[in-house]
């Protein structure tokens, strides 16, 4: 179903949804857009996509897997509950990343906490009519237009939004704001999306997954990695990165936590014996790209790079420029 929504009515639509969900939306914090719990602040919809991806709302930087409580030598365990929430303003590239994560985290045996969070989260996505210069989602087939994975989808048509429903939950959300909506069509949206796509493609007409894959084996990773400080920043902002580590806090009672981890960090592969199959930065950097471009597609059927450009935005050494694949 398609509707038009006046721009001034958007906060009201969100407020009504807030009766059922905690609303998470992009807001400017110290000038930087971030996905945070929304309490009516101005929405940062024209700012670039937040650097910390929505992946971290499903796999938080740090979370409790379960708590353990010891009583006369035996343990009881408790898994934390999750809250219903609605993420507003998710971009098509990040939606694609979530589909990829689903294929990993929900594969047998499924990851319970991730699964609970996915099931209790509604998504209002926002098509990208004003792509950032770091974006290359069109080349990666992940944007600038969302086709699935949302409950509601908005497209900025200038004066108003086009609102499309993508699920039964989305239809319910739209019904709750029925009198704010009028029947719409996607004529203008199609034109805008075509223009957006052309802009992204013409910024890097040479770029394609095939091009990147063929360059993987030609790039001089050793000299490129000389500038890599192995900080892992690229992984922590990448929407498809999902590596984590597990640790225990507390004795005899406590919690088992998991934290975001990165295969770029030097100790990621190190075993208890001290042996490290990927001790050199160049091995880790090249395998990071190998994972995105070759291994994730084998395992999930989806490309591990969605073209969001965050790794380039965050890298201190400027290593993740798409130019390395030129």
């Amino acid at each position: 179903m398609m509707f038009f929504l006046e721009k001034r009515d958007l906060p009201e639509l969100l407020r009504r949804a807030g009766a059922f969900f905690e609303i998470i939306a992009p807001v400017l914090i110290n000038g930087e857009p971030q996905l945070v719990s929304w309490r009516g602040e101005d929405l940062a919809l024209s700012a670039p996509n937040p650097l910390l991806p929505p992946t971290r709302l499903f796999l938080p930087p740090r979370e409790t897997l379960f708590t353990y409580l010891q009583e006369s030598g035996l343990y009881t365990f408790e898994v934390p509950e999750v809250r219903n929430r609605l993420i507003f303003g998710l971009r098509p590239c990040d939606l694609r990343a979530l589909s990829l994560l689903d294929r990993i985290m929900l594969a047998e045996p499924f990851d319970e906490l991730y699964s609970k969070r996915r099931r209790s989260t509604a998504i209002i996505a926002l098509n990208c009519t004003e792509p950032d210069e770091s974006c290359f989602c069109a080349q990666m087939g992940a944007g600038p237009e969302a086709h699935e994975g949302f409950d509601l989808l908005l497209t900025d048509l200038g004066e108003r939004y086009l609102l499309e429903t993508g699920s039964p939950a989305g239809i319910m959300l739209a019904r709750a704001s029925e009198e704010l909506l009028e029947r719409g069509d996607d004529v203008e949206k199609r034109k805008l999306m075509r223009e957006s796509r052309d802009r992204i493609m013409s910024a890097r007409p040479w770029l394609s997954p095939e091009r990147m894959r063929s360059r993987l084996r030609e790039i001089d990773w050793r000299s490129l990695s000389e500038e890599c400080i192995s900080c892992g920043g690229c992984s922590f902002v990448c929407p498809t990165c999902h590596c984590f580590t597990i640790a225990d806090l507390g004795l005899p009672d406590g919690e088992r936590i998991r934290c975001a981890d990165s295969c770029i960090l030097s100790g990621f592969h190190r075993m208890a014996s001290g042996a490290n199959p990927k001790a050199r930065a160049e091995e880790r950097l090249s395998s990071w790209y190998m994972e995105k471009l070759e291994h994730m597609p084998v395992r999930t059927g989806l490309l591990g790079c969605v073209g969001c450009g965050r790794c380039d935005r965050v890298c201190f050494s400027g290593l993740h420029r798409t130019d390395i694949f030129r």
Partner: peptide
């Protein structure tokens, strides 16, 4: 290999 999750999610042992 170094392992954390043991169920194919954490990517330590690839």
């Amino acid at each position: 290999r170094h392992m954390k999750c043991g169920i194919g999610k954490c990517e330590h042992c690839t």
